[in-house]
């Protein structure tokens, strides 16, 4: 079997298609919303774009952070793999890039992400393979996930809490992908 070439992904830059909120013109609610994010001190074009609807932005950001950074339960790298798989299925290049790099950082390895990008899912562990298959099936429209996917996850050692966490990670990326990809482009 051919050796898988290890890939290293460079960060992408995202640019909005629509005019984002101008900080100078932002309402108090928009300014407050943009401070809720725990990320960098500078407000990204993505956040400035979503700030046009600050209520949705605040609610979703809180839920997103709860799902992706919850204590205990599914290991973070598995949440990132679920996010990556959903992003690939939804065609969100930017999200896939971010979460592939996150997975590589958390696992200190590009083996899984290289295998994914090379189409060599046959080399994945049972657990990773189960996560990928479930995420892809759940992300489809209509969702195609069935009990065999749950069987595969439990056989790979996942407990109920971990599966709940995985479902939420996949689902929230169905949301995130449908903002990031349609509202801007990455390069």
């Amino acid at each position: 079997m051919n050796k898988i070439i290890k890939i290293r992904l460079k960060p992408l830059t995202w640019s909005p298609y629509l005019p984002p909120v101008e900080l100078a013109d932002a309402t108090e609610e928009q300014l407050a919303a943009m401070k809720v994010t725990p990320s960098a001190s500078k407000v990204s074009p993505y956040v400035l774009t979503l700030a046009h609807d600050p209520e949705s932005y605040v609610a979703r950001t809180k839920l997103f952070n709860a799902i992706m950074y919850a204590e205990g339960g599914l290991p973070r790298e598995d949440r990132e793999l679920g996010a990556l798989a959903a992003s690939l299925a939804n065609g969100c290049r930017y999200c896939a890039n971010v979460h592939a790099r996150q997975h590589a950082r958390l696992t200190n390895s590009t083996d899984v992400t290289s295998a994914l990008f090379a189409g060599r899912t046959d080399t994945l562990s049972k657990r990773d393979s189960g996560i990928l298959a479930f995420a892809t099936a759940l992300t489809a429209t209509p969702p195609q996930a069935n009990h065999s996917h749950i069987d595969a996850l439990t056989e790979a050692g996942m407990d109920k809490l971990e599966i709940i966490d995985l479902i939420h990670a996949i689902a929230i990326f169905g949301w995130a992908n449908r903002l990031m990809h349609p509202l801007g482009h990455s390069n």
Binding site: D53, S56, W175, R178, L179
Partner: peptide, 8 residues
């Protein structure tokens, strides 16, 4: 943006 959030 609001419609995008709703759909998503």
């Amino acid at each position: 943006i609001a419609l995008s959030e709703l759909c998503a």
